[in-house]
């Protein structure tokens, strides 16, 4: 089984985005409280903070875009998906075999009829 927890560049960027999300959430919460208390200086400070967060978002996306432009080989996620696809296709073959075995065990009507006898 492929280890999906292996850190990859894409995961790293995702983690950074998650951190940004946390900071945004905290900022929003603080803004709600500061606004409720009518604390204008704090509100302005938090607004200014949010501009910085937004600039960080842009810097992060630009870095990710630039990085991705250099990642033209098959990514690890792609490789794992190919493996899963192969595995799924192999399963289909396996299922067909199981189906054959079950079908050769007798017609369903016969099985149901026996079940009725056993249960009634």
């Amino acid at each position: 089984m492929a280890d999906i927890t292996t850190p990859t560049a894409s995961n790293q960027f995702q983690q950074l985005r998650n951190r940004q999300n946390d900071l945004y959430r905290k900022n929003t919460q603080a803004l709600i409280e500061a606004a409720k208390a009518n604390n204008k200086p704090l509100v302005d400070k938090l607004r200014a903070e949010r501009v910085k967060l937004s600039q960080n978002d842009t810097a992060l996306l630009e870095a990710e875009l630039a990085f991705q432009a250099t990642q033209l080989d098959q990514s690890e996620a792609e490789k794992r998906l190919v493996t899963q696809t192969k595995r799924a296709n192999a399963m289909v073959k396996g299922i067909k075999t199981v189906a054959k075995i079950l079908e050769s065990a007798g017609e369903m009507a016969g099985i149901l009829a026996r079940l009725v006898t056993v249960l009634s």
Binding site: I4, Q68, E78, L81
Partner: peptide, 9 residues
């Protein structure tokens, strides 16, 4: 997780 990652890429 892999589908998400490939889609992001």
């Amino acid at each position: 997780a892999d589908v998400k990652e490939v889609v992001r890429e």
